[in-house]
Simulated scan of single mutants.
Amino acid sequence: MTELVHGTTGEVIEYQPVSPLEVEYIIRELGDRIERSVKILDQLQRARYDAETEYSKAFEQAKLTSKREMYSDRRSEAKIACLPLEREVNEAKAKLHHAERLQEALGRKLSGYQTIKKGLEAAYGAGGVSR
């Protein structure tokens, strides 16, 4: 049977299944990947919240310790001081959003293969061929 997942990168490989057994294999593999992704999404969400908390804490601290008289000046100074932490927050968000889009794509692909499987089962059943 053709491999569904690239051994090194873990990417799902595109190929045309040639039997109902291969379609079933694809469905199981994609379902397992989606299930495993939940744990990864939870970790990415935690990393995002941690980065946001660290940024907020540093930003507020920088505003409090600023010697500027005007609030807008203190805020601007704090914003500049916390740019590296803001980048970390944005990177954490980007990783999370990418993982969410990947999970959605795998779900759509799974749904498509389930539809193919139903069609194959109907065709094999109509032709008098049983599993």
Rank of each mutant, 00 (worst) to 15 (best):
E14F: 11
R74Q: 13
E11N: 12
R46Y: 10
S66Y: 00
R68G: 04
P20T: 10
E24C: 07
S19C: 05
Y55H: 01
E77Y: 08
E29Y: 05
I27T: 08
E77L: 07
M70N: 10
E54Q: 07
I26M: 10
E69C: 01
E29D: 07
Q61L: 14
I80G: 06
Y55E: 00
A58D: 03
L21T: 11
K67Q: 13
Y71W: 13
S66H: 00
D42H: 10
V38Q: 12
P17T: 00
S19E: 04
Y49H: 12
R33D: 05
Y55D: 00
L64K: 15
E35L: 13
E22V: 07
S37Y: 07
D32C: 02
K67S: 14
I27H: 06
L64E: 14
R33W: 02
S72E: 13
A78H: 05
A51D: 04
R33N: 02
A81Q: 15
V12A: 01
Y55M: 00
A51T: 04
K39E: 14
E60S: 10
D73T: 02
S66P: 00
Y71D: 03
E77K: 07
S37I: 06
P17S: 00
Q16C: 09
V23G: 02
E22L: 05
D73Y: 00
S66N: 01
K67N: 13
E22T: 02
T65Q: 01
D32V: 08
R46F: 11
V18K: 14
A51H: 03
A58W: 02
Q16T: 15
R36K: 13
V38D: 11
S19P: 01
L21G: 11
Y25V: 06
I26K: 08
D32E: 12
M70D: 11
D32R: 12
K39R: 12
Y15T: 11
Y71C: 00
S72N: 06
T53V: 06
Y15V: 05
E24A: 15
V18H: 11
E14R: 09
E77G: 12
S19T: 12
R75D: 01
S37C: 08
T53F: 11
I34V: 15
E29L: 10
S37F: 05
R68I: 03
E24R: 15
A78Y: 03
A47C: 06
A81D: 09
A78G: 07
Q61R: 14
Y25I: 05
T53E: 14
Y49K: 13
R36I: 04
A81W: 05
V18E: 14
I26T: 09
V18D: 08
G10I: 07
L41W: 02
R68C: 08
K67P: 01
E52I: 05
G10N: 09
L41D: 03
R36H: 12
S76K: 03
R74C: 07
E35Q: 12
S19H: 03
E14L: 09
V23C: 06
G10K: 04
R48H: 12
I27S: 07
Y15W: 09
